[in-house]
Computed example of a mutant assay.
Amino acid sequence: MPPNISTRQLQAFLALDECRHFTRAAQRCHLSQSAFSAVIRKLEEVVGARLVERDTRNVTLTSEGTLFAAVARTLLADLDAAFTDMGDFIARKKGRVAIAALPSLAASALPAVIAEYKRSYPGITVQLFDALSDQCLQLLRQGKVDMALTAPGASLAEFATRTLCSDPFYLVCRHDHALARKRKLALDDLAGCELIHLAPSSSVRQHVDQLTRGIAVHHAGLEVEHLATLAGLIGHGLGVSLVPELTLFQFRSMDLVAIPLDTDVVSRPILIVQRKEGALSSAAQGMLELIEARLRSTGRPRRESLG
């Protein structure tokens, strides 16, 4: 077990080493001479060696005292550096924050937030993992990220969650599609549409399957992993698709139109997900506050030309 030595004792001993005089060293430490002498005696007891040679005129260090003075300076310097680092972490001058987010968020809304955060706290390292919902939760479970921004799913019971924003759904089609001129669509308007789907593992597909249950939509036979592929297929007249608002930036390179679905329930919540145990670091808390300030909103339905 390491000896129980206080910073007060170390500072007193180093003051004595520098002043080589008990009275002046005691004054520097704002102690009476008797109290100061007691501190030094106690330190010698803990160290188990005589550190100081005393006489009526001057003070000299023993060989053990000379060695201990070097140790004391190192200990105090390390302690000061540790507290400086801690202060930097608390003040968000240093640190790390890691976020897992759905690809639609990672590519659209989060870059501006991260850029703003980095301008305010340039010393903090920010990591962003763009992943599907299950992968986001696995990263959180493994402790690799501080928070996840994802859609609701079946694996959330072990986490703390709250809604960040609502992501309404749009029909994306070519400009010459029969529905392209409508400003809003009811779910029944989708009857007869040839739908191109995203992969069943995606949160988008899971919501679309729920939305279209009981509606006579047709499966176009095309099922893809990536939104860029989806845009290309729609652009060549192979079908239409239902996608959330946060993904619309992926469809701007084609001559396409996005039309909102006219019902409040046609949206997927975007959740902030955290581990239930443990508090966020100062750096992560700052990022969370900025995300909530910039992204906590509800999308407004609007017909949008994407060409």
Rank of each mutant, 00 (worst) to 15 (best):
L132D: 06
F68Y: 02
A157G: 09
G299T: 13
V240E: 04
A148V: 12
L16H: 03
G214C: 11
T229S: 12
A220W: 07
T247P: 00
L16T: 05
A77Q: 10
D167L: 04
S203G: 15
S6A: 05
L233C: 02
L137H: 03
L156V: 10
K144Q: 13
R8E: 13
D134T: 11
E116T: 15
S155L: 14
K42P: 06
R302A: 07
I196Y: 08
S63C: 06
V266E: 04
R294I: 08
L105R: 13
S6N: 04
A131R: 15
V172L: 11
C193Y: 00
V240G: 03
G239N: 09
L185P: 00
T163L: 07
A82G: 06
V47C: 05
L288C: 06
E292A: 09
L75R: 08
A100C: 08
T161I: 12
P200H: 08
P301K: 03
E45C: 10
L139C: 10
G192F: 14
R162K: 12
V39G: 00
D17W: 10
E45N: 09
H30N: 14
L190C: 11
G95Y: 04
V126I: 06
S133H: 01
I5Q: 07
Y121P: 00
T7P: 02
L198S: 11
V97W: 02
R96C: 15
A231E: 06
L271N: 03
F83D: 12
L271Y: 01
G286Y: 04
H218N: 13
K42C: 03
L110F: 00
I114M: 12
E225L: 10
V126D: 09
L51W: 06
L140F: 01
H30R: 14
D134M: 02
A100N: 05
P200C: 07
G307S: 05
A186K: 09
R303N: 06
L67V: 04
S166T: 13
T56K: 14
R300D: 03
A231T: 10
I124H: 06
L187Q: 09
P168R: 11
R57N: 12
G65Y: 00
C193G: 02
V71R: 13
A12S: 14
A101Y: 09
L185Y: 09
L256A: 05
R300G: 02
H21G: 14
R92G: 12
I99P: 14
A216F: 01
L164T: 03
T163A: 04
D189L: 08
S34W: 04
R174W: 02
L171W: 11
K184C: 09
A279D: 11
E245W: 12
V217C: 13
N4L: 12
F22W: 06
A180W: 07
H207C: 14
R96M: 15
S203Q: 05
I114L: 14
G95W: 03
I272G: 00
I99F: 07
T84R: 14
A216S: 15
A283K: 08
A91M: 10
E158P: 15
H175V: 07
N4E: 12
L295E: 02
